[in-house]
Design a protein around this nucleic acid. Structure first.
Lengths: 162, 162
DNA sequence: TTTGAAAACATCTACAT
DNA sequence: ATGTAGATGTTTTCAAA
């Protein structure tokens, strides 16, 4: 937690194995993680602590089921703007950060300026979001891509080999 | 875990408060969650157990820092295909599921057929992924959107009010 | 809902390898 | 740097009030 992303940290095979287990299931007891990683508690625990301090492990969260929460619609929103000054960008950033239905937002290279991932109850809720967003910041062009089926979704990053 | 997404489960305000806390930080002690939710341990614990059984809570994972792992590039890949038969779709699904660098894949409504989110070390690694994918399944047209900046990224779903 | 208490677990230390 | 072992405090889990 102390050292947020001080870039490529050196990780050995045991570190990577531990990370791989933890990002699949962080509720495993330490002893189980140690067993599966082929080591014993103390070294595994020391590595976990070190990786937390280094910021490699950012935290631990519960994953919820969108459908159980009544969140049945997911849109990817492609945004083009004519305005590229810092003031506009700041207001757009604030608008996006303030809306919990925007679960992801990226600034892009190339001809589309931004992509958003928006999770809402239904199409009507998306429209409310959209109207609210364009009333707050001027946007040249918006294309909404509606997800019909989540084929794959993981929170596990691909851990590169050494 | 027993009852995967049996759709809109009834949740009261306390359930939602608990979920909101857990999806921000699942390492909080039960007592802390109870205190912040304004209840005591046992009822909170019973609700957490119930929501796990109902599949509202899908699990608990560690979140890793992409940069620390040397994963500096993120692409959104827009895929168009001419082939819409079940066989092609099955092979595409298998190809996508087999590749850990694809962290998300959706089948879309409309003129673009699929969107993928791909996390890799750099542009060269993306090109390897791309070459490998198109050698495995025929694809009509691919547009890759390169993320220059992750403006927002959360694993927390927006929890709708009652 | 609260309290209390048993069992499981994480955490840290010390020592040996 | 890793393993073993154990001490300590915390947390989960469950029973009972």
């Amino acid at each position: 937690m102390s050292d947020p992303q001080q870039n490529p940290v050196r990780l050995d095979a045991l570190d990577r194995k531990i990370l791989s287990l933890l990002q699949q299931d962080a509720s495993l007891p330490l002893e189980e993680i140690a067993a599966r990683a082929g080591a014993s508690r103390t070294p595994v625990w020391n590595r976990i602590r070190r990786m937390r301090e280094q910021g490699v492990i950012r935290g631990q969260v519960a994953l919820l089921d969108a459908e159980s929460l009544g969140l049945e619609a997911c849109f990817f929103v492609l945004v083009r703007t004519t305005e590229h000054d810092a003031d506009w960008a700041g207001r757009f950033l604030a608008a996006v950060r303030a809306r919990p239905e925007v679960v992801e937002a990226h600034r892009l290279a190339g001809d589309i300026d931004y992509i958003l991932k928006v999770v809402v109850r239904n199409a009507r809720a998306y429209d409310r979001f959209y109207q609210s967003l364009i009333s707050e910041v001027r946007i040249q062009n918006v294309t909404a891509l509606l997800s019909m089926e989540e084929m794959k979704a993981t929170h596990a990053l691909p851990i590169p080999p050494g």
